[in-house]
Structures are given as structure tokens and as C-alpha cells.
Amino acid sequence: MREQNNMVNRSVTIMIVDDSRDNLELLSTILKKESFRTHSISSGIQALELAPKLRPDLILLDIMMPEIDGYEVCYQLKNSPKTVDIPVIFISSKNKPDDKILGFDAGAVDYITKPFHRAETLSRIRTHLALKDARDELHRANQEIIIQNKKLEMAYQELQTIARTDSLTQLSNRGDLYRHLEAEKSRFGRNQKPFSLILCDIDNFKKINDTYGHDCGDYVLVHTANLFKKHTRLQDIIGRWGGEEFLFILPETSTAGAEIVAEKVREAIDYFPFMYDEKLLKVSITLGITLYDNFELSIDDAVKQADEALYLGKMRGKNRSVLYSEIRNTLKD
């Protein structure tokens, strides 16, 4: 058992702070016989300079020393981030209760009076070293828990992103678009500020797939999505509605504002050189626009309005944007 203690003690460093050479030698001899490593320091100022560098496992500290006493040394050690966790044991001839209270108030974990008993001193030292090890282990365990929790949170966020993102275009998927649509509807209910929807379809996309293959179709989808992101505002929400259809949600945007956005992205697609396998592809889009300004209107019905406007654009020759209000006005007439 003693041999096991000695093996453990060899990795433990104790700083002894005392202005008496005799006390330093006596304590150092006792501790070295137990295989502790020691640093003998003769002044409080030296202790404050060296403790942050040496980072001992425990400090044995005298109180009555010139220049700066042990109480002040302990107080400063406990107020420094580098030394706050090092246990301090006072060893002093001052044995009145008030002296001990001052020592504990300064931050010491124990107080041993001189002349000290060898076995008792070693027992107290080992006890506080064991407590320090337990605190350190608890701190390490807590840090590990924090790290693991952060990893779990990051993994959860990544899964949430995957669940809400179209894997090909990296835009919102249909489920995520529905979530945003419901949020915008709720916001409209609160502030009565309408928002616009744009449903967009890539013209003749089936022909592109049939002629050049699905890899080419994927190429067109990805580059179209990138152009959408490039030519819309930060607050705009874009997602893949399904197949070659995309939905734009434009918060607090009028029909006129939505029409500007629609024409901007339409022209960006129309003028972009889609090159695949050294072939220049002609790609265009048709867009249907509607305004959500009636809380009684369901989200599905609002999207249906945009779809009807999109269909009218297809009937008119494609590569254009159409307002649902044109259909509504026609029906009124």
C-alpha cells in the first residue's frame, strides 16, 4: 500500500512557502521521503511569481513573512484564474481561532498549527490532494459532457438541415416551404402586411431530360437554383416545390415588388449560358405570381392561385411571368 502511495506521490508537486530555512528543509525532507516532489520558496512575492508557472498540486503556506504575509498571498492566488484551483494549506504558529478564520476567509482549505505532527500533516495533505483530484475529475467530466452536448446539438442541427433541404439544389424542400408559408401566414395575421408567392417552372424540362439525359437535367436544376439565390433578396425564401418547379416566398412584398423579382430571375435564366457536354442549352422559365392578402385563404389555395397564373403563362408561350390578378380580373369581367 505504501509503495502504491509512493508511486502516485511521485507525480505530485507541492510548493512550500516559508521564510524560515529550517521549516523549508524540514517539510521538504518529510515530503520527499513520501516521494512527493517539492519546490521550496522563501517569500510570498516569489510564491505569487512562480505559482502560475509551476502550477503545483498543493501549496503549504506560512503566514508570518516579510513584505507580504500569507493571508495576502492566499487571497491573491485565489483571485487569479491560473491559481484559483490550487489548494492552499496554512502551516503557522498562529493558533488563535481568529487567525484560522482569517486563513479560511482568504481561501485556504486547511490550517495546521506549528509545531505540526508529521503523520497528521501527511494525512491532511493526502486528503486535500484526493479532494483536488476528485474536483479535477468532475471538471473534466463536466467539460466532456459540454463537448458531447455541443456535438449532439450540431448533429441535431445538421439533421434538421438535411430534413429541410432538397439534396440536389440545396434549397428548401417542400416540407420546409410549408413551414415558412405557415409562418408568413401567421405574421400576416399579426401585422396585416401581405406577402407574395411566385411559382416557377422550367420550360420544356422533360425535353431536356429526354434529349440529354437526367444528369443534364440535374445540371440545369442546380444552376437554375444557384441563379435564383444570386438574384433574389436575403429575406426571400426559395425552395424546390417538386420536379422542375420552384416556389418563392417574398415576405412583406407587394404584387409590383414580386413582379420585379420574377422578371429579374427570369432574365437571369434566359441570358445565362447553360453549357453541358460542350452543348449550349436554351433554358427559360415561366412564373406565376399571387398576393396573399386574405387570412381566410388557405396556403394550398394561395399556391393554387400562383399555379393558375403559371399555367396561363405557359398557354401564352412560356418564358414570361403572369399575375394571378389578371385571371381574377378576367373572371370579374
Rank of each mutant, 00 (worst) to 15 (best):
G103V: 11
F274Q: 12
R164C: 13
Q157L: 06
I63Q: 02
Q76H: 10
F228T: 04
L247E: 15
P97W: 05
L247C: 08
D110G: 14
P194A: 12
G107I: 04
L48S: 12
R135N: 13
K82Q: 13
D57F: 10
D176I: 06
S43Q: 13
D133S: 05
L199D: 10
L131M: 15
P273M: 10
K150F: 06
F295W: 00
K78L: 09
T253L: 05
A256D: 15
S11P: 00
K207D: 04
R2D: 13
F248M: 11
M275N: 15
I91G: 01
P56C: 08
I285F: 11
H231V: 01
K185L: 13
T29D: 08
S42D: 07
S123Q: 09
I112H: 03
I14V: 14
L221I: 07
E158I: 09
E158N: 08
I89H: 04
T29W: 09
R233E: 01
Q235G: 10
K32G: 11
L199W: 07
D176L: 12
S43I: 14
E252G: 08
F228E: 01
N23D: 07
A256R: 11
T13G: 12
V88R: 08
D19F: 03
N329C: 11
Q192K: 11
R316A: 15
A183D: 05
L31C: 12
I299W: 00
A309I: 02
E308H: 12
K94P: 11
T127W: 08
E34I: 01
A47S: 09
I101H: 01
C216Y: 07
L54V: 04
I327N: 04
T121H: 07
V8L: 09
T113M: 06
K229C: 02
L323H: 06
L199R: 03
G189Y: 02
I208G: 11
F195C: 00
Q170H: 11
V220N: 03
I45R: 12
A262D: 06
K33N: 08
D99Y: 01
L48Y: 03
L280P: 00
Y219T: 05
S80N: 13
S11L: 10
G313N: 09
H39N: 12
E144L: 03
V84S: 05
K230A: 13
N191C: 13
E263R: 07
R266L: 05
S43F: 14
